[in-house]
């Protein structure tokens, strides 16, 4: 079974995340990494291929530095990588990004399965998997916490607040996984040493038959018109407990509309 895993290079949530002047997330001047939520998709792909046969191709769209996300997945054990990198892609919204991903998946070949994570840890929109499935004309099963593949179909469990659904789809399909599905492996020494020799292709828009006008700010349906950084957290109020601590606490919670 051949699997394409879509991954994103995101700013490290532990570092200071900022926006550029054009209101896009600054992905170049901060420490970045493979979005943690995508590690679950990589792990699931590796498990499926290890249990049978086939190859895992990791796909990302992003600036030059985004190749680091692909490399991390290769160190975990993926077989090859594709990095779509073109200045014109800068500013693409979810819709435009899904177009680039769809063209890249088509160029990679006809995978049996396209895997994604739950959402990126920077944008957190969680819409690209659905858009991508639509563009590829694939059945989509998103937000699954358990996955199995047998007899040309895929079966996943979706946990909601009130019930757990088991959803089945015929292959080829797109599946999005949650962070409950597995425990991503650490890159092993052998994985790190082997990754150096694994192929990573870099594709531009023209390699995908796309025009600059179809992507970036111009090709996007949505636009971030303003960004306000969340105000710094204010210092808390210390209330000494003089026997009435409980009352004061309830008063505070009540005032804050928390009870």
């Amino acid at each position: 079974m051949n699997i394409v895993v879509c991954v994103k290079y995101v700013p490290d949530a532990q570092s200071d995340r900022t926006f550029s002047d054009d209101h896009t997330t600054d992905r170049t001047n901060v420490d970045g990494l493979l979005s943690e939520l995508d590690e679950y998709a990589v792990e699931e792909a590796l498990k499926l291929v290890e249990a049978g046969e086939g190859e895992v191709t990791v796909l990302t769209v992003g600036p030059e530095v985004a190749v680091e996300a692909v490399k991390k997945a290769l160190k975990m054990g993926a077989h090859k990588g594709v990095h779509v990198c073109d200045d014109a892609i800068h500013g693409s919204d979810a819709g435009a990004t899904s177009l680039v991903l769809a063209k890249a998946v088509e160029k990679i070949g006809k995978p049996d399965l396209v895997l994604t994570g739950l959402a990126s840890t920077d944008g957190t929109m969680s819409v690209v998997p659905a858009m991508l499935a639509e563009r590829l004309g694939l059945p989509q099963v998103t937000q699954v916490s358990e996955l199995s593949v047998a007899d040309g179909s895929v079966k996943g469990r979706r946990d909601t607040d009130i019930a757990s659904e088991t959803v089945e789809a015929s292959l080829p399909a797109l599946v999005g996984v949650t962070d409950q599905i597995n425990e991503p492996r650490y890159p092993s020494l052998k994985g790190i040493m082997a990754a150096k020799k694994k192929p990573v292709e870099t594709w531009s828009l023209s390699d995908l038959g796309l025009d600059a006008a179809q992507v970036g700010f111009e090709g996007s349906w949505t636009k971030v018109v303003d960004v306000t950084q969340r105000p710094a957290r204010e210092k808390g109020e210390v209330q000494p407990d003089e026997g009435d601590g409980g009352t004061k606490l309830v008063e505070f919670l009540n005032k804050s509309k928390l009870v």
Binding site: K75, Y186, P187, S188, L189, I192, M193, K196
Partner: peptide, 11 residues
């Protein structure tokens, strides 16, 4: 490669 190994063992 050396940095990657150190990072993986540390994590």
């Amino acid at each position: 490669e050396e940095r990657d190994l150190a990072t993986t063992v540390r994590s």
